[in-house]
Deep mutational scan, measured.
Amino acid sequence: PKDEAKKKVKEAIKRGDEETAKRIAKKYNLDWDDAKREADEER
């Protein structure tokens, strides 16, 4: 599900692992900028 994928993307971003985050986002066709902004807001 997309929500689960987005959570994984945000967790990867918070760990500083943007490569993984981008790969997950691409795989699930998520909006990378959107997920990154959300992760930054939660930090």
Score class of each variant (00 low, 15 high):
K22F: 06
N29Y: 05
P1K: 14
E18A: 05
R23L: 14
A39K: 04
D17I: 00
E41K: 08
N29M: 07
D3R: 07
E18Q: 08
A35C: 12
K27T: 08
L30Q: 01
A21H: 00
E4G: 07
A25V: 04
D33E: 14
A35V: 15
I13K: 01
R37P: 03
A21M: 00
D33V: 08
P1C: 12
E4M: 11
A12M: 10
V9W: 05
D40M: 10
A39G: 05
N29H: 10
K22E: 05
V9Y: 05
E38T: 05
K2E: 13
R15Y: 05
E41W: 10
N29V: 02
K7Y: 11
D17F: 05
K7F: 10
K36G: 03
A5M: 11
E19C: 05
L30T: 02
A21Y: 01
W32L: 09
I24N: 01
K10Q: 12
K14L: 15
D40G: 08
W32K: 00
R23T: 10
D3W: 14
A5P: 05
E19K: 11
A5I: 11
K36F: 10
K2W: 12
G16S: 02
D31E: 06
K8H: 09
E38L: 06
D3S: 12
E42Y: 06
R37Y: 06
V9P: 01
R23E: 14
A25L: 02
W32S: 02
R37D: 05
A39V: 14
D34I: 10
D40Q: 10
A35M: 15
R23Y: 10
K7E: 13
K27H: 11
K36T: 07
K8Y: 12
K8D: 06
K6W: 15
K26T: 10
I24E: 02
D17C: 10
K36A: 07
E41P: 05
Y28C: 02
A25N: 01
E18V: 14
W32P: 02
D17E: 05
T20N: 07
E18P: 07
R43V: 14
D3E: 14
K10T: 08
I13M: 06
K22P: 00
D34P: 02
R37W: 08
K6F: 15
Y28Q: 02
A21F: 00
I24P: 01
T20R: 07
E42L: 06
K26F: 11
K14P: 00
A5V: 08
K36W: 12
E38G: 06
E38P: 03
A21W: 00
D40K: 07
K27Q: 15
I24W: 05
E19G: 06
A12D: 00
K26D: 12
D40R: 07
I13T: 01
D17V: 01
A35S: 06
T20A: 12
K2D: 12
A21K: 00
D33W: 09
R15K: 09
A5S: 03
R15G: 04
R15A: 11
G16T: 00
K8Q: 14
